[in-house]
Design a protein around this nucleic acid. Structure first.
Lengths: 331, 331
DNA sequence: GGGGAGTGTGAGAGCGCTCTCTGGAAGAAT
DNA sequence: ATTCTTCCAGAGAGCGCTCTCACACTCCCC
């Protein structure tokens, strides 16, 4: 049991040549049925599994793809279920394609070089980058080196790189319109970092709706952390005490904004309505539960994987987002 | 640039044989300094990176280890930052050892066979299993097949399998003692599932402290989900309305227990003190913030990786847990 | 000064597989 | 019956690397 059987052994047992055994194992149709069966039986009996290293060596394929989380993403990894969703989605699709998923969290130092070296030397067939920042140089570098690469999130500058993005702007628009439909008049926003596409698009969506209805925007910028949500909310309240609604660019900041509102004597949703973005699990546990915009993270992972495996005809995909109405925006 | 250089090329450029080039690349000391420098220069100039497949083929090592999340774990993956911590820790250590991390989320069907086939055939040098259930057959199977395997969490039945565990019992004891020190008299518990070591040990810790102080235990059992925390809390209140403290076996259930207390007219911490376990991020956002027991998840990942890489002398490790006191257990 | 020990380098086999190329058998066409 | 085509199986090269073994050389001791 210790020594794993080789193709040679399988061939010998089936009474054929190694070449024929290989053909059967790789599903060639040009093999006589009875021989095919004999080989399959031998494979079964011996518990043969192809040696991936030997196969890769000759095919020059690795049958594995890398999922890279650049450093900034890694830091928030623990807090943000978005990444868990992407991992699950990618994993499902990879598994279906019978390939391996190599996870790379780029460390503090030299992470890029490591990924670059690794990926440009045929160790993987493609790279999925869960990049948060549009300025990330890695996707471009890899693409230029001829490595199939797909990004989660649209690059901030127009580019031909393949990506899968969420409809951030559309989600933001729906959220803000929802606030207007609920009769809110002074709608502020806590925006995300403006070097991330999610931050940019969500702010744009907010602005577009307000502009259409001739209202002025009231904006404070956070960095997607809870603490920044708290201080942005305080600032907003100081700037304009009459605010009766706030669209927060992610749930984490919304979680930070709510205590700030409470401390300022505002009730949610009675005095101020709050909408978040992401639909993290915690959003449904807050008091009151948070209205938010849900993102299809698992689906995103699947599409990323399919795209890098070249199973997808489109190379730039936008996934829909969905408004989830809860008590934080009740009448 | 397209064709990657081979060792042969490096050797030719450095004016040595392939064997010597190989020695230098693999850090053998038995090479003359000037030759070593020449080879290193050639490596640098050519941008040479060893072909892992070729190397694996001859060394019979894969230079990669698998991190397996069995199905039940995968399901809660998104909610539980414990797994994110383990991934990060494993990843750090793997990176340091210059190996690869292959992530396997075992799918709904046939996941075990897939992992088993994959791991028993030399594709990885070892397997880390983030198993939640002590009854999981996978670790035993792999160990019997001669694959180095390490589990997160002690098996429920005594075994010689290597593991890294948290001091769940100790953490629970500290939590319950803390409640007693704060003058609480009737201390109940919401226990976790009794087929998981974390559930078992935390309940045992609770019971041990109560027994020592001659109090009776008041127990409801949940399944680590938020909803189960809510219903367990209701049941506890129905069983004994005089309860003035509850030790909840994980934060998620504690998050569910708090609204149940509020609905029953109990204030936290004034009427009932609450302690959780895990220290998930949400624990510090609750109203009031939750006293809980912190687990060193990243450290756990590191130790798991070190153990499977055989860098650790001990094969059964228990990591300390730490009580984090917040407002939910104030006087 | 010759034999042994020690050290550094090269030659060459071979890891397990895929894939091209060749050969032989069988069927179709002349 | 002969040739041409078609089809399937086998022989063999070679992917890029490591590692054993043999060999050449230097150094030292008797």
């Amino acid at each position: 049991m210790r020594a794993r059987p080789t193709l040679e052994k399988v061939a010998a047992r089936a009474g054929v040549s190694r070449a024929t055994a290989s053909r059967v194992v790789n599903g060639s149709t040009r093999v006589a049925p009875q021989i095919r069966d004999a080989v399959n039986r031998a494979v079964e009996e011996l518990g043969y599994v192809p040696n991936q290293a030997a196969r890769s060596l000759v095919t020059q394929r690795a049958d594995s793809i890398a999922l890279v989380f650049p450093e900034p993403a890694t830091r928030v990894f623990s807090d943000d279920p978005t990444f868990a969703g992407i991992i699950r989605g990618v994993s499902m699709e990879i598994e279906e394609a019978d390939k391996q998923l190599v996870l790379m969290l780029t460390g503090m130092t030299g992470g890029y070089q490591r990924v670059e070296r690794y990926a440009t030397n045929g160790h993987v067939d493609g790279v999925v980058i869960a990049s948060m920042h549009g300025t990330d140089p890695l996707p471009g570098i890899l693409a230029r080196r001829g490595v199939p690469v797909v990004c989660s999130g649209r690059p901030t500058v127009p580019s031909s790189l393949p990506y899968v993005d969420m409809d951030n702007a559309g989600g933001a628009e729906r959220a803000v319109r929802h606030l207007m439909e609920r009769g809110r008049r002074r709608i502020a926003t806590i925006a995300g970092p403006q070097d991330m596409i999610a931050g940019i698009d969500r702010l744009n969506g907010y602005r577009a709706v307000l502009r259409d209805s001739d209202r002025r925007s009231i904006v404070a910028v956070g960095d997607f952390t809870r603490e920044s949500g708290t201080s942005a909310m305080r600032q907003l309240l100081a700037d304009d005490p009459e605010i009766d609604a706030v669209f927060v660019a992610n749930d984490m900041m919304a979680l930070g904004a709510m205590p700030a509102l409470r401390q300022a004597g505002r009730r949610v949703p009675d005095d101020v309505a709050v909408v978040g973005f992401d639909d993290i699990p915690a959003a449904s546990y807050t008091e009151p539960p948070l209205t938010t915009v849900r993102q299809p993270t698992v689906e995103m992972g699947r599409r990323l994987a399919r795209m890098v495996l070249d199973l997808e005809e489109k190379t730039q995909v936008m996934l829909p987002t969905e408004l989830v109405v809860r008590e934080s925006t009740a009448f």
